[in-house]
Every structure is written in structure tokens, then in C-alpha cells.
Simulated assay, not measured.
Amino acid sequence: MQEKVTFGLSHVHFATYTETDGAIVFDTPVPIPGAVEMTNEAVGDPIKFFADNMVYYQADNNQGYEGTLNIAVVPDSFKEKVLGEETDTTDGVISEYADAKTKPFALLFQFQDDIKARRHVLYSCNAQRPSLSSTTKTDSTEPNTVELTYGAGPVIIDNRPIVKASTSHSSPPAVYDGWFQTVYTKTAVTAPEGA
């Protein structure tokens, strides 16, 4: 069973992570509401080695994706956890400091298709600061949107460089239903011995 068409974007989440002694530990995914559009362009030119007046050897060079996510607004949670902005607890003001350090994160999302929505995760993303803009209200009253630009590259999980993972129509309910509760890794769903 294979889908014929894809349409729709929903359930966008982000999950920051830390690396300790070579192990990646993902935080709980946090929703990014108001997703409008997403594009992910493949990065990595093929490797070609020329000899004997021809392409003697060639191989793929998967360096991940360059992506954009168009959303209604950037959530304060994303500004703080990913972009490194700071909220003053005494007056609630969120400040962007020039020396702020961004944090890598996993990006989770869902594409609807004609059979069942397919869920995805890009494991290691780094976001750029979004532009700050707006337009005056007009008769059409069309809302403004914000575009987040990010790079999504490989990260080492289970001793292999992985860029992304997606559910399929054979994914068990435990994996599919829990997709936005924790970041999927193969070890997280490995059955214990004797199970």
C-alpha cells in the first residue's frame, strides 16, 4: 500500500538535545503551532572521481537538507530554547542578546496523504534568526507569517550518521501514536530480550 498524493502540513514540533559522552539525549518535543508551509532541499553534491577519461567512481554525498518553515508566529518557547533569547522573570521581557548561542534540535512534523499521514523527524537542525517584519492592516486582513530557515544535517545515533526518519504504513501503533511524545530512535523501541 503506497500513497498516491501528499498534501497538508501539521503537528510541527521541536526537541532540543544535548550530547554527553557521545550519546544524544533529546528533550520532550514542544509544539510549534500555526504551520503554513515547509520545504527541505537536499544538500550534498555527488562525489565523482575521473580516471581513464571517464567517471571512474561516483557516490552519493548526503549532507542533509536546507529547510524553511513558514509559520504564524515564532513561539516564545522556541525563542528561548533554540535561539537562546532570555526572558526576564521580573517583567516578562524577552531579550535577544548578540552573544546568544543557538541550540541544535530535532524537527518533527506530519504530511497528510491520501491513505494515512506520514510522520517525520529531522534529527539535527540548526536555526537562523528569523527576520522581524509586519505590514499594516488592510481590507483583506491577511495575517503575517514568519519564515524560519534551518539546516538539517546528520547526527550519530547507534553508531551511524542519521539525517531523518519517517513512519510507514507498517509502523506499529506504539511508534506512530508516540511520534510527537518522544523523539524516535531505534533503541527507544527495541523490544527487551525474551519479549
Rank of each mutant, 00 (worst) to 15 (best):
N40F: 07
Q58M: 09
G84P: 11
M38G: 00
F105V: 07
A117H: 09
G34Q: 01
V82L: 05
F105W: 08
I115T: 10
I47N: 14
R119G: 03
A106H: 02
E66V: 06
A72Y: 01
D21K: 05
F78W: 12
V30L: 14
Q63S: 06
L107N: 14
D88G: 12
V36G: 02
R119T: 06
A100M: 05
V93W: 12
L83N: 07
D76V: 03
V82W: 09
K101A: 13
M38H: 00
P29Q: 04
G34A: 00
L69A: 12
D76M: 05
V25M: 08
F105P: 10
G64A: 14
M38S: 01
V74P: 06
D114H: 07
A100Y: 02
I47A: 14
E80V: 08
N40H: 10
D60Q: 08
Y56T: 13
V74W: 01
M54E: 14
V25W: 07
N61C: 13
V74C: 04
E85N: 14
K48V: 08
T87L: 07
A100G: 00
P29F: 10
F111L: 14
K81I: 11
Q112V: 09
F78M: 15
A35K: 03
S95F: 04
K103S: 05
I71S: 06
V82N: 10
N70A: 11
Y56G: 15
V30C: 11
E80C: 10
A42P: 09
G22R: 03
V73W: 06
R118K: 05
L107T: 14
D113Q: 02
V43A: 02
G67P: 13
V43W: 01
E96V: 06
E66Y: 09
T87E: 12
T68N: 09
Y97Q: 14
D27K: 05
A35Q: 01
G92P: 15
D99S: 13
Q58D: 03
D114I: 07
M54W: 11
A117P: 11
D52W: 04
E37S: 13
K116L: 05
V73S: 14
E80I: 11
K79S: 09
T90H: 00
E66G: 02
Q112T: 08
M54H: 14
E37M: 12
F50Y: 08
T87G: 03
M38E: 00
F49T: 15
Q112C: 06
V36F: 01
Y56N: 15
T68E: 07
I24S: 10
G44P: 05
D52F: 05
A100R: 06
D27L: 00
E80P: 10
D60F: 07
E66S: 06
Y65N: 05
K48L: 08
F50M: 00
T102Q: 13
L108I: 05
